[in-house]
Amino acid sequence: MDEGGPDVNVLAEAWRYLSAADNWTGAGGMADLLVQQLLLTVTALLMSLVLGLPVALWLGHLGRGGFLAINVSNVGRAVPTFALLALLVVAEWPGTQSFGPYGRAGLATLVALTLFALPPIITNAYVAVREVPEEVRESARGMGMTGRQQFLRVELPLAMPLIMSGVRLALVQVWATATIAALVAGPGLGRVITDGFFRSDYGKGIAGALVVAAVALVLELLAAFLQRFADPTRRVAPSPNRKAGMSSATSTVGPEVDAVG
């Protein structure tokens, strides 16, 4: 392929690849790979939620371990997803063998994805609970709430928007990392991209990229939509003064974007 200048041929080829039904159906077709990657993404996200969220929320409640909870994100940013995936695949453990529905190099990919989803979840959840105003916490205590009640009825609802934006970041991160997994013979749609590029079939590579990018945007919009529903301060919106005070904490970490693989 020539350098420079829009290459119309490649785009036409990509379109041809996308519009051929054969490329979507059957074993190893794009529909198959899409399902595989979605399955991987959702599993990894759930695993990191189960692993990371309780610890981070608890630390935030106690107000301890902040250094760790915040720096885990910095470490996560510095480690290239590609390098970690490669190390896990080449190491004998957890191996390159197929792992149930997750395909070849499945377990290595799943471990790497889960690890990369943890930092945004942990950091945001910790900060979210810490950012609940001290006055609110004190009044909860003054009302005679136990630590548990204070956490469940006061801190958790107020922290929800920020926790959810952490989950959203993690979702974007996991989808991106799951794509990169194809660089190390992993499963998923990234295969279409790497196959295309490494065999000089650029139309195919670009077609794969289009699908991956489109699904990424859909997932992001879906997550944004869900986030709106999960925000409890939104549901009580009719009393405006209440809302103003409570969602003010959202802006501190919310807009910060994290690294995507």
């Binding site: 200048g5 829009p6 990392t177 660089l183």
Partner: peptide, 23 residues
Amino acid sequence: TTGIYTIPSLALFPLLVPFTGLT
């Protein structure tokens, strides 16, 4: 910018290739 950020890097590079080539 947030939209661009959502696109995985492995997909963003191929999307630029028709314009800038393998450079």
